[in-house]
């Protein structure tokens, strides 16, 4: 017991700096945020924020009230982020899997190619999404130039304004995101023993048969983790929209993070913004719960 007590104290000393950082940057702000979400806090009440009018759940009713602008904008942004995920996650995964299967073969220059495909992942978001913003420009952009050359369009398309903006952001994020999934899937593929394939080949199994009965089941744990993580990261989506829309937080394809930024720092409604932020937190916590459960299941 004495030893246990000593261990507790030593461990506490070791994790104290990390614990303080977590306390000040995560725990206290999140609790404060929940508190603010019940207040009518705007720029006028900010100086005396603790005595700002307490409005109970009104902010929450407002952000889900389709009769109000703020409600329509927020619900639209929730739909936008779901749509964004429904497009980028499956497309990104399929590309990543296809390339992982491809790169798992032996060919000259394999190491270089493997390093090369990681480039999009390691290049800073701000750099790459600015470049994609350039590529999607209507009159001077590469996308329209190529589409025109192959005859798919006659007139330049406006990509970054209006509903087509979602398609542009999805394309750019898929391009930026698949290499990481591919990396994880490749490491999963390398963990599959070659003997399994040899045995299947002796039985004369086709490529599809081998994929169905060996590769896919063996990759499933990695796939599951990667998909759950993608769902969580999906709700973090900010950089790609912020940069490609040129910092315009009022776009019709805006995701919640942009809407919250606008509500709090442009419209200066901190209470409403915090209520939206709490909703986002709950959504992410829900998925994190799934992820923890699925890890537990994996261990048993």
């Amino acid at each position: 017991m004495v030893l246990n007590q000593r261990n507790n104290i030593t461990a506490f000393k070791f994790i104290l700096p990390a614990l303080l950082a977590m306390l000040f940057v995560h725990v206290i702000p999140i609790l404060t945020g929940m508190f603010i979400s019940f207040l009518d806090l705007d720029i006028k009440t900010l100086t005396q924020w603790l005595s700002a009018p307490f409005v109970g759940l009104r902010n929450y009713f407002d952000i889900f009230n389709s009769g109000m602008d703020v409600g329509r904008v927020f619900m639209r942004s929730l739909w936008n982020v779901v749509l964004y995920g429904l497009l980028t996650i499956p497309i990104g995964y399929v590309i990543a899997l296809a390339v992982a299967l491809l790169l798992n073969n032996k060919f000259p220059g394999r190491t270089i190619v493997r390093g090369l495909v990681l480039l999009p992942y390691i290049t800073p978001d701000s750099v790459m999404y600015n470049v994609w913003r350039f590529i999607f420009q209507a009159r001077i952009g590469l996308v329209n130039k190529l589409l025109l050359q192959i005859g798919l369009i006659q007139e330049p398309l406006i990509w970054l304004v209006g509903d087509r903006a979602m398609a542009s952001v999805v394309m750019a994020s898929v391009w930026k995101g698949w290499p990481f999934t591919c990396l994880i899937l490749l490491s999963g593929l390398q963990g599959i023993s070659a003997e399994l394939y040899e045995a299947a080949e002796i039985d004369g199994a086709s490529w599809w048969k081998k994929f169905r009965s060996i590769t896919w089941p063996m990759l499933w744990p990695v796939t599951r983790t990667s998909l759950i993580m993608s769902c969580i990261w999906n709700f973090h989506a900010f950089n790609q929209f912020y940069v490609m829309l040129g910092g315009d937080t009022s776009s019709s394809v805006a995701v919640p993070s942009l809407v919250i930024l606008r509500e709090a720092f442009t419209n200066l409604h901190y209470g409403l913004g915090s209520a939206m932020a709490v909703i986002m937190l709950l959504v992410v916590l829900l998925f994190t719960g799934f992820s923890i459960l699925s890890r537990k299941e994996e261990l048993h």
Binding site: T32, Y270, V284
Partner: peptide, 23 residues
């Protein structure tokens, strides 16, 4: 502690930007 590390890693920044700014 492990669990709280794992979860804070998942929190979207936007969830605590406003209170953090005010603090």
């Amino acid at each position: 502690y492990e669990l709280s590390l794992f979860s804070t890693q998942m929190f979207p920044g936007i969830a605590f930007l406003i209170p953090y700014f005010i603090l």
